[in-house]
Design a protein around this nucleic acid. Structure first.
Lengths: 209, 209
DNA sequence: GATTAATCCGAATAAATGCTCGGAAACACT
DNA sequence: AGTGTTTCCGAGCATTTATTCGGATTAATC
């Protein structure tokens, strides 16, 4: 019942399922946890609720996870890996559109938006309510991973950021774009449509390159 | 003991302290709560802990607050009001520096950074761990308030954002700057100094105006 | 078919903690 | 000093909920 400070939490899954049946319950648990998180919030994630929704017994949870946090961590780590994969793939497409910078940037912005939008509810809860979020390796590394992706794109592209400090400006550009998209997904500003924001964002990025 | 979904939480203080003695305990409670939040995290905020640190009895807490959440809400609302005030004040200074846009932007960026930095630990916990954060009016309105401040600055200044959609681009610019600063305060990227980031940020903003 | 290992079950346990309530103490006002 | 109001106290109640454990059930292996 501790929170998110001193204690070292065990966030790894306990044991690998060996039989197919076991793999199914393992997945059911992780998936059920993700659903409760997204639909009911972190406070609703009780071990009993997750077990119930997964259709397994409470005892089975502790067969594969050392504690509640490890279940949540598994669910969130999975989502992060998916996001990184989608964002990375979209960058490769964008770079392939070398000839038309606007089209490339546009595609990339929209892909990032889609990747976050698809998991909006989950991300909202994760970022706002999960106390040990930043103890999850996949989350902690996300920022750096995105930086790598951005650097990679810059190197392969003809366009370059031309400011005094290329590293700092690349970092900032990526951070700003990512934050703006995330913000609009999480906060859902009512007076400005997503479409309007995206196209304006593309303009701004082009101007900064 | 509920979390952050369906239930309507009472986040207002219960009753106003009438005597000076009472005002002192009221303040002590709010301040103690802020300290526990910033130094030990939300999970450490138990009614007993706050009472202890405030040097009052547990019973006294419930004299002025209907529940635990109201105490946390009071502490955070106070911080938000202070931030808005500081950011607003710094904008007025920046606008007064009309002649030198670079100096004005620079001053403003640094003031925002300072305002957030000063409350870094508190903000980190608030944004990452407090489940009902967005039910607090002062927090919910923060984004809009910042938008107003930005619009105000734009109107009073000679420089204008020149993109197809002035409203969207102003919104995005403010969001991006705010997010980037907040991000760097919360995340503390080790490989890039605060100074480096700030000056680059100033460059970028100038380029977008 | 017998034996071993993996998986699943769920009532019971144990601990944490938000909050109440009856009464004592301090204060304001006459 | 007397009276009513405000403030303060803190042991105890009530509830929630993470986790255990002994044993039943099913699958793999010989």
């Amino acid at each position: 019942m501790r929170g998110g400070e001193g204690e070292r939490l065990e966030l790894q899954a306990k044991k690998r399922p060996r039989q197919a049946r076991a793999q199914a319950t393992f997945d059911a648990i992780v998936q059920a946890c993700a659903r409760v998180l997204a639909e009911e919030g972190y406070a609703a994630v009780t071990t009993n609720r997750v077990a119930e929704l997964a259709g397994v017994s409470i005892g089975s949870l502790y067969e594969y996870f050392p504690n509640k946090q490890a279940i949540v961590a598994s669910a969130l780590a999975r989502a992060m890996r998916e996001i990184v994969e989608e964002v990375g793939a979209s960058l490769r497409v964008a770079v392939a559109l070398e000839g038309q910078p606007r089209a490339g940037i546009d595609y990339w912005m929209r892909a990032m938006t889609a990747a976050l939008e698809k998991r909006g509810a989950l991300l909202r809860v994760a970022l706002r309510e999960v106390p040990f979020l930043w103890d999850i390796p996949e989350v902690r590394d996300l920022s750096d991973t995105l930086q790598h992706i951005a650097q990679e794109g810059r190197k392969k592209s003809a366009r370059v950021v031309h400011f005094d400090d290329p590293e700092a400006s690349t970092y900032l550009l990526m951070t700003m774009v990512w934050s703006a998209i995330l913000q609009s997904v999480l906060y859902r500003p009512s007076h400005l449509s997503r479409e309007r924001l995206t196209s304006t964002l593309v303009e701004m990025v082009l101007k900064l390159l």
